[in-house]
Computed example of a mutant assay.
Amino acid sequence: MIFTTLGRYFLTRYAVTTFWFLVGIFSLVFIIDFSEQASRLSNLPHYSITAALLISAFRIPTILQQTVPFVALFSAMAALISLNRRYELVVTRAAGISVWQFLRPLVLGAFLFGVLAVLALNPLAAWGAKKEEAMLAALGSSRTSDAGSIPWLRQIYQGTDTIIGARSVQDGGTTLINVTVIHFDPQGSIILRQDAASAKLEDGYWLLNDVAETRSGQLPRRLQTAQLRTNLKPEFVQERLAKADSIQFFDLPRKIEVARSFGFSTNGMETQFHSLLSLPLLLVAMTLIAACVSLKFSRFNQSRSVILGGILSGFVLYVVTVLVKAFGSSGIVPPFVAAWLPVVVAMALGSTILLNQEDG
């Protein structure tokens, strides 16, 4: 069925519908995000319209990545409703083709869409996030991509205890922006505070730029550069500060192994890896849900309550997937189970409902 003329026609209809949904969401998100960025960054010293447009463009892949399950759901619903209203599904059924046969092209389209999202959209989103951080730093912004998560590092080197904090992270953690360094004596009292515009991890030291040093009982002094000796390695810093959702799919296995070698928890990265692996099947589950509410024939008016039920079912599946993913990242549920269980259950329920509707 998939490679027949009818199968190719159904697959083409699904692909075209998905494409236009993506174009519509891209345009809407870009306009809204540009308006937000322009109002938020307009007071920065190096602000320009071009910079705001570029920042919004870099953010779009990350936002689109979050909407992929809903695009798959709405595309399948729109394609099936359109085929129903044109009597094409009626003729297909009259020709003796079962629902499982004419759904195969749509299921294949959803699966390929998921593969494309993992192999192309995810790396593009990771690249765009790095570019966004770099542009924000160039504009003089201290805003981080995750305002609730300010990175902190602690190092003990040659008898000195130091805490390093930053407003944002670049280059995988080896470059910090808007840095605060606090030095402690052996008794735990603060002896020195350094505030720097940036810090870059070099071989054996942090290079601080545009530094303001404050000591107890002394006037602050400014330095163009300063060095902070360290035994931290770039690989350690990158694993300590890296966020699972900012790592592209192809780098996750290596990052997981490196994190394990340093003794870090890998639950977040393992959950992200399995979530990306299961994304194509999640889109297949969304397609089955769409089929459950879109196959009933109606020439002019599709039942609004049924369509709304399909949308709510897809939304509930997405929320459950995100919630269980959070459990996996925190270690409450094994990462493999957290990523795959909602997908398997949704596919089983969708198939069961379709079997009941079509075969009794």
Rank of each mutant, 00 (worst) to 15 (best):
Q66H: 11
G188R: 06
T271F: 05
T160D: 11
P186Q: 07
L201G: 08
G128V: 05
S351N: 08
L80M: 06
S265E: 04
L108N: 06
T214D: 00
R229V: 00
H46G: 00
T67E: 10
A76H: 02
V258Y: 00
A244P: 02
Y157K: 09
F297D: 03
A72Q: 03
G350T: 03
R167L: 10
A346W: 02
F113E: 13
L192A: 07
V345F: 11
G309E: 04
T160V: 13
W340K: 04
G331D: 05
A51H: 03
F70M: 15
S305P: 01
Q65C: 06
N231K: 08
S305D: 05
R93A: 10
V179T: 05
E133I: 00
R260K: 14
L201D: 06
L282T: 11
V68H: 07
K131M: 08
S305K: 06
A291V: 06
R260F: 08
E202F: 05
T174F: 10
Q170I: 09
G350R: 02
Y157R: 12
V319E: 10
A166N: 13
L208Q: 01
S330D: 09
N209F: 00
F336N: 04
T225W: 14
S351F: 03
A51V: 12
I182P: 00
A125D: 12
T225I: 13
I63Q: 06
F3W: 15
A134W: 03
Q272Y: 10
R40A: 14
Y205P: 01
A120E: 01
R193I: 14
S75N: 07
L223A: 12
L6I: 12
M347G: 14
F264A: 03
P151I: 07
S189W: 04
R167H: 09
F315C: 10
A120I: 09
A57H: 08
G314E: 04
A197R: 10
L219E: 14
A166K: 05
V322E: 01
L312G: 00
I311T: 13
L64H: 08
A117K: 03
G128A: 07
T352L: 14
T160G: 09
F300E: 07
Q187T: 14
A199E: 05
L6R: 11
A244M: 08
G217V: 02
S149L: 12
V322Q: 13
T160S: 13
H274N: 08
A79E: 11
Q66A: 14
R222V: 02
G159H: 03
V16Q: 10
E36K: 13
A117S: 15
I353R: 07
F250T: 13
I163W: 00
T230S: 13
G114H: 02
L121H: 12
S35Q: 13
L308E: 05
T12F: 13
P45V: 01
I49W: 10
G109K: 02
S261N: 03
G114I: 04
L355D: 11
S261I: 00
T18P: 10
G172S: 03
I31H: 15
L288W: 15
A212M: 13
A76K: 00
P186T: 09
I177S: 13
T17K: 01
F74H: 02
L106F: 12
L241I: 12
Q357K: 15
S278H: 05
A326S: 13
L89F: 08
F300Y: 02
D359L: 15
